[in-house]
């Protein structure tokens, strides 16, 4: 079935789909380990604690955040790979794949912009008062978590589209689609970090950090695996149709 009219609609799509795992590894290393975000500093802590960290680990924080910003673009690349698979499922129009791609593109900003706040905090930490460093740190986290609607858009469009696959053997298993939808439905809880400084709903709390981040990373991993598995199936469909 070739609805695109292209001779090889899946060229580069594998590379795009690998964007997810590449970003995942980069985020864990640069954002998580070098950026000291496993876990982040508690919102209930004092400004001096955060300022001391940025003053004592300036280079580490700078490297972590520069590379987080650099690798962030892989999120939209990954989103394009997912969109190409979604287009092969869509029957009537490309609304869901387009929404997914927009969601992925905007989520790229959610990775890059907070990293720029944290990079600013590491730019001249010795000259800034602790409260200013804390402000930059807080602003980064608030944007990072509270802009959940952009990622939710991507995830829900993706899950709904995959569920609509009418093939006898769906390209993406339905249990994966339902997991994806569940992760999308869990994201609004992140908005609560703007209300709580400590406890399970704070930015370093049990639910909004230790549950939300692993389920999101698992979503990225699972989606990448099943999108990569879908590509040869779609290539076969394309070959048979031509």
């Amino acid at each position: 079935m070739d609805r695109t009219g292209k001779s090889n609609p899946y060229r580069y799509v594998r590379f795009c789909a690998w964007g997810g795992p590449i970003l995942l590894v980069a985020l864990i290393f640069f954002w998580g380990i070098l950026g000291h975000n496993i876990p982040p500093y508690s919102a209930a802590g004092n400004a001096d604690e955060i300022a001391t960290h940025f003053r004592e680990h300036t280079s580490q924080a700078r490297i972590g955040m520069i590379f987080t910003m650099a690798f962030g673009v892989f999120y939209v690349i990954w989103g394009l790979g997912i969109s190409k698979v979604m287009e092969a499922i869509e029957q009537d129009n490309n609304v869901l794949s387009t929404l997914q791609l927009w969601g992925a593109g905007l989520t790229t900003i959610v990775i890059i912009l907070p990293a720029s706040f944290w990079l600013t905090a590491a730019f001249r930490p010795d000259e800034l008062p602790p409260q200013t460093i804390q402000l930059l740190y807080d602003a980064g986290w608030i944007f990072f978590d509270c802009a959940f609607s952009l990622t939710m858009l991507q995830i829900l469009a993706m899950g709904v589209c995959f569920l609509g696959d009418k093939r006898a053997q769906p390209i993406i298993p339905h249990w994966v689609s339902w997991y994806v939808i569940w992760v999308g439905c869990m994201l609004p809880l992140l908005g609560l970090i703007s209300v709580f400084k400590d406890g399970p709903f704070s930015r370093s709390g049990l639910i909004n950090y230790w549950i939300e981040f692993p389920i999101f990373f698992l979503f990225m991993l699972l989606s990448s695996i099943y999108v990569l598995r879908a590509i040869p199936k779609l290539e076969n469909e394309h070959a048979l149709a031509n």
């Binding site: 569920l163 339905h174 249990w175 689609s177 339902w178 997991y179 939808i181 569940w182 439905c185 869990m186 549950i211």
Partner: peptide, 13 residues
């Protein structure tokens, strides 16, 4: 139905 995955995950949360 596949929704059972969502339901179990939701109940777990």
């Amino acid at each position: 139905p596949g929704i059972i995955v969502f339901i179990l995950a939701d109940i777990a949360s």
